[in-house]
Amino acid sequence: MESRIEEYTVGELARAAGVSVRMLHHYHAIGLLKPAHILRNGYRVYRRIEALRLQEILFYRAAGMQLREIAELLDCGAPLQRLSAHRSRLVKGLSDHATMIATLDRTISHLTGDDPMMIEDLYKPFSPEKQAGYEHWLAETYGPDMALAVAKAQIDTKEGFESISEDGAKRLREIETALVANYEAGASPENVDLSEHQSWVAEMWGQPCDAGAYGKLSEVYLAHPDFIARFETLSEGFSHWLAAAMVTWSKHQ
């Protein structure tokens, strides 16, 4: 039994978790993480149970889950069950990454002439089912013509981002860093210059990205969880802001 009650102010909890006070205020406002109690002066006070809940939230955010999904998950089962299930998913992810690394090592050795590879060995880490499912979703949602063009934007998902060239990835990081800075500074999505982003998309597609295709891409960003997850890791709420900015930008092209 604990000999004392651990209590933390919002600032203390934010510093311990490496998050902002503003984020904890937001979590409180949406009911995701409520303080143990609020003092008369308005100060929020958290205890061990809230600290553990915040840790669980951060585990799921790191996995790319949206806050709405996290809230629904936290309403199901006990913390021990949820964390055990999440651990199992992470272990599977480690196994998948181990396969990826092993294939990378073999490919590097192959390119230096030390390890010949069969054609099948090149693609062991990649799931044909996932890619086929993604393309099927695109075709059903937007039609075969649009799906063909937008499918090339799969580089914006986590898996695809890792496969683009170093120069392409560096440029995307620079573009997104600037956009995130605008977003976090409170810029309106109606007043953002997206010419660099649109140009980058066109280069990655290998064909022009006109206003119609660019506007339609914003719908894909909001409709498919892979895209949302990647943008939300850059900054919470950024996916919706970017999509709104893309729609406005495409209307003025």
Rank of each mutant, 00 (worst) to 15 (best):
R15M: 09
G168L: 05
S199F: 13
L54G: 00
R47I: 06
A147H: 12
H252D: 12
L179T: 01
S3H: 14
S195F: 03
R82C: 08
M246P: 03
L33E: 02
H25F: 05
F238K: 05
F161H: 13
L172V: 01
V45A: 04
A229S: 15
E7P: 03
L54W: 09
L39T: 01
R4P: 01
H97A: 15
E129D: 10
T112K: 12
D121W: 00
G133F: 02
M118Y: 00
Q66L: 13
P208N: 09
S195Q: 10
A147W: 06
W205I: 04
R82S: 05
H136Q: 14
R230L: 03
G42M: 12
V45H: 08
R47H: 10
S127G: 09
H224Q: 14
V91D: 15
L90R: 10
G64H: 03
A16G: 07
E7M: 13
P208D: 08
D193T: 00
V150P: 01
M118H: 06
D75T: 08
T103E: 06
M65D: 01
V180A: 02
V247Q: 06
S218D: 12
Q207R: 15
E140F: 03
P208G: 08
A151L: 05
R22K: 15
I30M: 14
R106I: 02
R82P: 13
T112N: 14
E176S: 05
L222E: 03
F227L: 06
A245D: 03
L138W: 13
S239H: 00
V192W: 05
H26A: 10
E140A: 10
D167C: 03
L24E: 06
I108F: 12
Y8R: 09
A245P: 07
I175Q: 00
S163W: 04
S88N: 05
E190G: 06
L73S: 07
G237C: 04
T141K: 14
C209M: 11
M23H: 14
Y46K: 10
V201C: 08
S20C: 09
A149T: 07
A16D: 11
L32V: 04
P128R: 10
L24K: 11
S250E: 00
R53M: 08
M118S: 14
E159C: 05
L138E: 13
I164H: 06
P144L: 09
A245I: 04
A202L: 07
V192C: 10
P79Y: 01
I5Q: 14
K170I: 05
A147I: 11
E184D: 11
T248L: 04
E184C: 15
T9M: 10
S218C: 14
E166H: 08
L80T: 09
Y123M: 13
L33R: 02
L94A: 10
E236Y: 05
A63T: 10
L74I: 02
D210H: 11
A213P: 07
A202D: 07
G77P: 11
D105H: 07
E196K: 15
A185E: 15
E50V: 00
A185D: 15
N41C: 04
G113K: 06
G77W: 08
E120W: 00
A187Q: 04
Y27Q: 09
E159T: 09
Y134I: 11
R89K: 07
A132V: 06
L24G: 03
A223G: 15
L217A: 12
S218I: 02
P208V: 02
Y8D: 08
M204Q: 13
D75A: 11
G237V: 07
I108Y: 14
S195K: 08
